[in-house]
Amino acid sequence: MYTTEMSKTVKPIEVAEDPALVEAFEARVAADEFIEPKDWMPDAYRKTLVRQISQHAHSEIVGMLPEGNWITRAPSLRRKAILLAKVQDEAGHGLYLYCAAETLGTSREQMIDALHSGKAKYSTIFNYPTLTWADIGAIGWLVDGAAIMNQVPLQRTSYGPYARAMVRVCKEESFHQRQGYEIMIALANGTPEQRRMAQDALNRWWWPSLMMFGPPDDNSPNTERSMRWRIKRETNDELRQKFVDITKPQADYLGLTIPDAALAWNEEKGGHDYGEIDWEEFYAVVRGEGPVARERMEARRKAWDDGAWVRDAAAAHEAKRQAKAAA
């Protein structure tokens, strides 16, 4: 999801740690206890969490851009307000998540620097363009739908601040998918042009949505450890399968066709079979070669750089005020 590891070559971090402490930590996590900021934790746990939470936060913030692209063009006052409120929620979610990661000793500014320098990753899905209004429907329906699957279990993740942030995120996100599907219903029942938009959006967003769950399990080296630490609750392939099974009937209801000739119900496994994902494309997008990856990064850097004088001004004003108060 927003949080799945993007790279298959994550180096294991080896630090000499007191085996007694490690053992006590593992026992607490295994007993479903929450780990809090000042508790002792293995270095690898801390680093993995900072990477995962900040990646999640970056995804929320970069994710504001494709949808923000349509706020000024939303086709009714109601849709405009809903979309603005939704994108605002994403700013809020990014904010909660950065704050959760900050409790691990990395500042938001450091995380933002890592994003802007290209060192940090974010979900590949946001490197695709929103071409028509139907894309706003498709993002809510598919992208938020996929995100929810991953985020709901994270409300019980082992790191307390992360779990609490996810509780808030999930509560607020509950309307996001529904508003997206509602847009799709309107389009699917609309004019021929609207139906064309809806089908085209599904065609373009389907495969990138499946890729959101990350590399296949046999290519996801840290899954086992992350699941033991309860910072991941289900494997990439399990979640992907669940998503396909849930989404297929929703597409049927809309009268839209999922762009996969291999998609078929498999009675034996009690789920759908689906076609081969183009992993080459996935890794290319992870490397920053997505269709609008450059635009996304340029927009984020510009917002931050253009805001520098504002941040400085407010800090300078407060410094003056404090100096006056001290005098």
Binding site: M64, K80, L84, V87, A303, G307
Partner: peptide, 28 residues
Amino acid sequence: SEWCGHAPVLEVDLSLANIALDLIGQAT
């Protein structure tokens, strides 16, 4: 609403969106 996603910091992004939402509601 043109500011959305482009404000000087996240907190300001939220503030501007709140004002915009109020205004769109009033207009309606």
